[in-house]
Amino acid sequence: MTDILVLGAGYTGTTAAIRAAVKTRRTGGRVTLVNASTRFTERLRLHQTAAGERLTDYPLDEVVAGTGIDFVQGRVARLDVERREVTLQGGRVLGYDKLVYALGTVTDAAVPGVSEHAYAYDDYRQAVRLAERLDTLEEGTVVVAGGGLTGVESAAELAEARPHLRVVLLTRGRPGSMMGEQARAYLDAALDRLGVEVRSGVEITKVLPDAVEPAGGELIHSDATLWTTGTRGLPLAEASGLTADARGRIVVDSALRSVSHPDVYAVGDAAAVSQRFGVMHGTCQGGIPTGLHAADSLADTLRGKTPKPFRFGYFHQPLSLGRKDAVIQFTRPDDSPRRWYLKGRAAVAYKETVSGSPLPTYKLLKRGLVPAWVFSLTAGR
C-alpha cells in the first residue's frame, strides 16, 4: 500500500483527495484526508455568511463517502518532511509516503492591529463572528479594507443585506483594478447604488478596536473592520524545511511537486506555481485544476510514468454585487482583461453557476467522469 496524506479539505484539497483515491485505487493507494473542521466550507461564499445568510452545511465525511478516503478531523501542528510524518494538535502522528499540501493561505496580518481587531475570511467561524457582531449594531460603520474582488464582493453584500449600516471600502487603488474599463465603470455604479462609500488611495497603517488609521490622515471610525488586503502561506511550510517563496507558498515544479522534497505535492493557494505568464495567484479557478493535476501526477509516478507538465490559463473574473447584480470580466490566459464582459441578470446567472456547490461535480469526479480541463472553464474565483 502507498499511504497518501492530503492536508486541507477546501475546494482544492477535497478535489485532490477524491481524484487521488480514484486514480490510485488499482495501484494500492490509501488516501487519508485531514481537516481542522468536519464541515466543508464554501469559501467563495463567506461574504454571504458575513452578511447573515445561512448556507447549506456539508459534512466532509458525507462529501467523500464512497471513495475509500479515511477522513481525520484535526489541526496540523507540525510537518516533518524528513521523517514523512504529520503531527496533529493533541499529539496524534500520521505517516505518509506521498503528501498533498492543500492548507491554503491565511490573512496577511503584517499591519499592526489586524490580528487583534479585524475580522477575516480565514475560516467559516470568522465569517460567522463578523455576522454576529453586525447583528448587534442598530447603526454604525463597517470598514472593508481591500479593493480586490473579495473586498468589493463583501462591501456590496454587506451594504445590500444591512442597509442600516454605513459601509466604507478602503483601497490603495481603484476597486476592481484588474478589470477592463467598462466592467469597472459598471462596478463603480453598482457600489454607488448600494451606498458603499469608496475611498481610494488609502494605505492603512494600524487597526484599532474602533477605528482604522490611514497614513497621513485622520482616524476612520469603525464598529467592525473586515481585512481582505492580501494573504500568505502558513508558517508551517517554511518551518518544515520546504522551499517557499516570499509569501510563504511552497515552490513546485511542473508536476506540482515541491522542488526541495518531491514526495510533497502543493496545490491551490499554498503553492507557488509558475506558468508562462508568471506565478499564478490564488483563485479557485486556478486552484481546483492544480488539485486534479497533482493527483494525476502522483498516480502517474506510482505507475512508473513521467507526469505531464501543468498548464493553465485564466478565463474570467466573476464578481457578485449583492444577490441581485454581478459583473463578469472575461480574460486572456494571463488574467488580463478582454473586451467582453457580462453584467446584470446574465452575470448573476453565470456567477451562480460557476460558484455553485461543487458537490454535484464531486459525485461525477468519484466516478472518474470529470476531466481536468472542465474545471479550468467552470471553476469560479
Rank of each mutant, 00 (worst) to 15 (best):
F71C: 10
V72T: 13
Q73S: 13
Q73N: 11
Q73E: 12
G74E: 08
G74D: 09
R75V: 15
R75Q: 13
R75C: 14
V76L: 02
V76C: 01
V76Y: 06
V76N: 05
R78A: 14
L79H: 06
D80Q: 09
D80F: 05
V81K: 08
V81H: 09
E82F: 09
E82G: 13
R83Q: 13
R83C: 02
R84I: 03
E85M: 09
V86M: 07
V86N: 04
T87Y: 02
T87H: 00
T87F: 03
T87L: 10
Q89C: 11
G90H: 00
G90E: 02
R92G: 06
V93M: 05
L94Q: 06
L94I: 07
G95D: 10
G95Y: 00
L99D: 02
L99P: 01
V100I: 15
Y101G: 02
A102Y: 00
A102M: 05
L103I: 15
L103D: 04
L103S: 03
L103Y: 09
L103E: 03
L103N: 07
G104P: 00
G104A: 02
V106H: 00
V106A: 08
V106L: 12
T107F: 00
A109R: 13
P112E: 04
P112I: 03
G113Y: 01
V114F: 01
V114I: 07
V114Q: 01
V114L: 04
S115D: 08
S115H: 09
E116W: 06
H117A: 05
H117T: 06
H117Q: 07
A118C: 08
Y119Q: 03
Y119F: 15
Y121L: 14
Y121R: 08
Y121I: 08
D122W: 07
D122C: 08
D122T: 13
D123K: 12
Y124L: 14
Y124H: 14
Y124Q: 12
Y124M: 10
R125K: 10
R125S: 11
Q126K: 14
A127T: 11
V128M: 11
R129E: 12
R129N: 11
L130Q: 05
E132R: 13
R133I: 11
L134M: 10
T136F: 04
